[in-house]
Each structure stands twice: as structure tokens, then as C-alpha cells.
Design a protein around this nucleic acid. Structure first.
Lengths: 352, 352
DNA sequence: GCCGAACGTGAGAGCGCTCTCACAACGGGC
DNA sequence: GCCCGTTGTGAGAGCGCTCTCACGTTCGGC
């Protein structure tokens, strides 16, 4: 609770409602009405007050306003990612940009919280539950995070970004991981591939599970068997993808296509395939996920699944604002469509 | 100024100082002293008050506190990057993590501002200048940003992250772009390269200019001439790097090494070199900058300059907090050392 | 044993705002 | 011309906190 020392040399002059009222020759209440856009002010008075506001450069004091309205005018964004995707892929900047865009239009502030340790997570939970924000956006939570539970108890509205594994019945915005993965695998089937392996993401993350299910969906719908030998699991990283590919290749020399649940893993797999003398896409076709910059950096460029990340952030913010305004728990889910971006790594048709 | 509707069904029960005081049998003032760690409280009373606080789950109301201390307890972080580096490289997440770490220890909130348009920038400036934050961290400003000027006028302390082109004489934290680039080029000289080209970054960004100067420094110190024909400029992107490499190669078939001012540009250059039948590093050695995930994704992996990004964020926050506490303009500059990470793209010695 | 300093505590004002309530002014229906 | 509804405005309380000031108590020095 160590606050910065209060006394200091600087003395900024701030104009208050009172001064505006004085200058405009009205009461504080009237100025307040003008500032807050109340309709019960006559046009003449409104004009005078607005002139006074402009002349004095008046800006309302948020703290004073908060104190009486019991609204902070800010929402928390919790990014609980332990370095993994955080540092390898521009997912978060995009998401933040989307959130920020939706918020700034409503004059709400974005308070960013990035707990780095369990102690930090506790502090974050305390902060949020204390009502210092009007609501929160929870991104990339892992299985056992205590946040949703605590927020619910404290009665603070929140929206999940990405499906948390243990559903908490709250509002949710996600990209269609399952559908995106399914489309990717359908694309491989359509180009004639017969032995399609997958490098799945971690089983403790919604995106990992959902993308694997999409893979299964596509095969099942095509009337094909799902073979465990063709499924390897990794952690969304380059190294993980490489190791998984090595293992797949060792036990299944007949593989002619691989769907990796992230571009990073696909890039790792690509290196292993090329080192093993496999041509991509001629011998083995490869599809990634995320459409990250890496997809168009490696050679051949990766076919990948593009996700509307900024839109996701936008939608999350919109949902939260709605929940705050309605003042009661809302449960809405929005699933955003993905798009398959075809590139060289799965170009042409399979060579028999 | 559209605030969310104030009335709503939810009624969170919050405990106030008053209630804690009542329970502990002391006055509000004493509870306040305990909460703020004042030394003028006897151990007995302190214990009682702390017990009452714990029993009631009391958390101070920030708005009320702000109102009287005239401190918001939050600092603004402005990321003014127009999509460029923002979406291609995990620079910002790392930086934010560093900032967040330093701030959370001091119980300061991080308010993230990502202006996306000139209108947004104006709004951001208004917000900051209005004193809604105790200070600000300005990252990745471009040449003509009005922010520093307005902040200075408003008397709000701020710290630059990365050298702004037009120095405003304020505090600054940067990585040693010039030194890092110099080290990279010295490495190429040491391995025997004779015709060393560079793909420089934009001339309107500090990092672009500084890294080019580092290239020049290394050559000059080695007693070599700086030849304009060996300097191409691009925009830090993959495509830009590729185009620059193409141009360099066309006019200078004798090039035996390239220093690219970003990994993304290096990756672009790598593709062009390989397409032109040049072996890397045997025919042309290649060094990038940033040590981004891309450096270890492409084949061969890129030698690159690693920057302590998290530390940079940390340091920025520390400097700002110091400036806020001292309450007067502080001008300090911190330049953080970089490290050359050697990988295959410049491995071995030049083949004569 | 007396005085002044040091210490611990409480009373109370006040930060800038919103919002309820009261009230004045006006206008239309009878 | 009276009453009532509508409309615009002001007075004033109060949100939860900090901080100054005043006051009672303790203690060391002589």
C-alpha cells in the first residue's frame, strides 16, 4: 500500500466546476448538467456554460466523479499468459488494439494487469474484486485460475477472451478454433492427402483442445478413421513442434500431410521435414494456425488459419460494456469466424 | 464524455474507514495512519486496527484517496506505433511486462493508451494533460508527435522509451542501438568479411538512425571506407528487407556479408539471397537485429543482436516513479547494453 | 517535582463532484 | 382567475478519504 509521497514542488492549477459556475453565472448543479449532457438545461444557459468551460479549459476530475457515482470509468484487462504465446506472437498487441479502440470511444480507461507470479495473481484478484474497475476482460487464463470465481463472488462483471477450460458460465468471445481447424484439414483432404497427422496444442488450453477436435471433425465427416499414432502434442512453440514432428516421422513414415495447431509449431515441423529430405508440399503438405508473421517468413510460406484478433478485442469490450450498463450478469457468447489463407506449403494437389 | 449510466441493480457492499474505526474502537485518522504505514501509531493499536481490517476485508477506496492526495495512483503508457512493429514482433508485450512488473510492486496502475488515429492522439493528450495520471511512459513516438510538448506544458512527468528523433530533453531509456550494431558489424569484420553491406531502418526513427551509425562506427574504426552503394534503406519489414537485398545484390555482386537492422528484414534478405543461389553463410554472411523468434525460426538461424526489453520497461518505470516522487523535472538517460547472439547465419570464417 | 519535548490520538474540515429536493416561473384547462 | 403540471435552476448534503491542528499523556533533565 506504499503510496508515492504526497507533497511535491509541482502545483498544477486545475479548474473546478465551481469556477466554471462562477464564470458562467450559474450554479454548480447546472454546470454539472451541461457536462453530463442532461436535457434539462435551456439552450441559452447551455451556451454560456460551454463558453465558460472552453475559456477555462475545464476538465472534470475523475476521482471526484468516481467517488460519488461509484463508477471508476475504467476496465481491467488481465493477461495471465506465462510468457508462452505472450512473447512469440503478436496476438496480444492486436487484441489490445481491438479492446482499446472499442473503449476509447466510450471514454473508458484500459487498466492493464499482467500478473507474473501467483502472488501477483492474488494481488490482481484483490484489486479487481475491490471494485477499482467497473468490469474486466480475462484473457488466456489457464485451467486453475482463481480469478473468475473471485470476480463472480465480488459481483464484478467480466468477459472471457478465449474459452477457459472449466466453463464458468460467463460471457465469452472466442474465435472459431474448432471450425478453423476443421476447414484446414478439409483443405488437406480436398487436395488429395491421405495420411494426415496433426501436431496438437496443450490439452490444458481451450485453443489446444478445440483445434484438435476440429481435426477430428474433418476426418470423421470425410468418413476416415482417427488414428492415435497420427496425433502428437506439443506446447505451441517452435521446439515443441520440431520434437513432435520428429516423433511423428519416426513412427509414421507414410505421413503425407501435417496440420499444426500453431504457425510456430508448423515452422518447427518444417525444419524437421526438410532435414529429413521431405519436400513441402510435394512429399508432405503442411498447414499452420494463427496466420502469424512467421507463416509468411518461412520458405515455403505456410498455409494458415487467420483469426480476427482485433475484432475479438472489440467484441469483448462491447460485451463487457453492455454487461456493465445492464448491471446484472449477462451470459452471451460470440464465436468469430476464421479464414484459411492458402500459401505454398499446401499448394497444388498431392503427388501420388 | 458519455459516461455509463450510473444506476444499476448491483449493490456491492464496501467497507469504509469509518467502519473499521468503529470496530477497532479508534478514530478514522488512526485507521488511515495504519493503512498508510505511518510510524506514529502504537503497536497495540496497530494490531487491533489490522485485525479489524482483515476481519472486514477493508480495501481503501482509490477515488476518495485520489481526491484528497491529488495523485491518481496510475501512470499512462502510450504506444503510438501505427501497426508496424506492433504486430510483427513481440517487442511490446515484453516491454509491457517489464513496466508492469516494476509498477505492481509500487501499487501503481498501468493505464494503456493506444491511439490509432490523429483524433485519438488528441484525446490521449487531453487525457494525460488533464492530470488523470501521475506520469507517463511514451513509447515508439514518431518524429512529429505533439505529446511530449503538451506533457511538458501541463507539467506531467514522462519518460521516453527509445530515443525520439527530436530530443525533448526529457528522461530517456533506450537500448544501445549504436553499440549493438557496431558489435554486429565488428563480428563480421572479425570473421573475415570484406564487403559488408547494410539494410538500414527508416531514417525517421531513432533505432533506424542509430543502428546505421553503429555500422559506420565499426567500419571506420577498422579503417575501412563507408560506401554508399553498400547501404540500402527499408522499413523494418520482411518485404522491405527483400526489396533492399534485391537492389544491393543487383548493383553489388561482390557483397560477402549483410547486416540488417531487424530480423524481419534479415529474413526477407535471406530469401532473396537463397533464391539468387548464394549460400548463407558460406557466400554471404547475414546478421539481423532484435533477436526475435523469427531469428531462430528461419534456416539457417540468424545471428542477431539481443536487447533487454523487459529490463528497459523496468527501468522506464523506475525512472518515472523517481521523477514523480521528486516532483520536479528530472533528466536522466539510461542506455542498456545489448548482446550479440551468434548463430549459423554468420558461422565459421569467410571462405576466401 | 516541575517544565518542555516527544509521542499518540481524535476532531473536523474539505477535496470536486453528483443528485435529490425544493422552489420559482410559466402555461394551459376549466 | 385559480389550480395543477411542467420545466429550469439552485441549495445543500454527502461520497470516503487525508491531513492539519489541538490535546492529553509520558518521560528525561535538572
Amino acid at each position: 500500500m506504499a503510496q508515492l509521497a504526497a507533497r511535491n514542488g509541482r502545483t498544477r492549477t486545475v479548474t473546478t466546476l465551481e469556477e466554471v459556475a462562477l464564470k458562467a453565472g450559474v450554479s454548480r448543479a447546472t454546470v454539472s448538467r451541461v457536462v453530463n449532457g442532461s436535457p434539462k438545461v435551456s439552450p441559452d444557459v447551455r451556451r454560456d456554460v460551454e463558453a465558460a468551460i472552453a475559456a477555462l479549459g475545464y476538465v472534470p476530475n475523475r476521482a471526484a466523479r468516481s467517488l460519488v457515482t461509484r463508477r471508476s470509468g475504467s476496465i481491467g484487462v488481465v493477461i495471465a499468459e506465462p510468457t508462452g504465446r505472450l512473447f512469440s506472437d503478436p496476438f496480444f498487441p492486436r487484441l489490445l488494439r481491438g479492446i482499446s479502440g472499442a473503449l476509447s470511444a466510450r471514454d473508458l480507461q484500459l487498466v492493464l494487469l499482467m500478473p507474473a507470479s501467483p502472488a501477483d495473481t492474488d494481488r490482481t484478484a484483490d484489486y479487481l474484486a475491490a471494485g477499482h474497475v467497473d468490469g474486466a476482460l480475462l484473457v488466456s487464463l489457464h485451467g486453475d485460475d482463481p480469478l473468475p470465481e473471485r470476480m463472480t463472488r465480488a459481483g464484478i462483471p467480466f468477459v472471457h477472451g478465449g474459452r477457459p477450460l472449466r466453463g464458468t458460465g460467463s460471457s465469452l468471445v472466442d474465435v472459431d478454433n474448432r471450425g478453423g481447424a476443421k476447414t484446414a484439414v478439409e483443405h488437406l483432404i480436398a487436395r488429395g492427402n491421405e495420411v494426415i497427422a496433426t501436431i496438437a496444442g496443450p490439452a490444458d488450453m481451450g485453443a489446444g483442445v478445440d483445434r484438435l477436435n476440429g481435426y477430428r471433425d474433418a476426418l470423421t465427416e470425410a468418413g476416415r478413421a482417427i488414428e492415435d499414432r497420427l496425433i502428437a502434442t506439443a506446447d505451441f512453440t517452435h521446439e515443441g513442434g520440431a520434437a513432435a514432428m520428429q516423433q511423428l516421422l519416426r513412427t509414421n513414415p507414410d505421413i503425407d500431410a501435417v496440420f499444426a495447431a500453431s504457425d510456430l509449431m508448423a515452422a518447427g515441423a518444417l525444419g524437421v521435414l526438410q532435414a529429413a529430405g521431405k519436400r513441402v508440399p510435394e512429399d508432405v503438405a503442411l498447414v499452420g494456425y494463427d496466420d502469424s508473421p512467421i507463416a509468411s517468413t518461412v520458405r515455403p510460406q505456410l498455409t494458415s488459419v487467420h483469426q480476427p484478433i482485433e475484432e475479438m478485442g472489440n467484441e469483448m469490450a462491447r460485451l463487457l460494456v453492455a454487461a456493465i450498463e445492464e448491471g446484472q450478469p449477462v451470459q452471451r457468447r460470440v464465436i468469430l469466424a476464421t479464414e484459411l489463407i492458402r500459401r505454398a506449403s499446401s499448394g497444388g494437389r498431392r503427388q501420388p
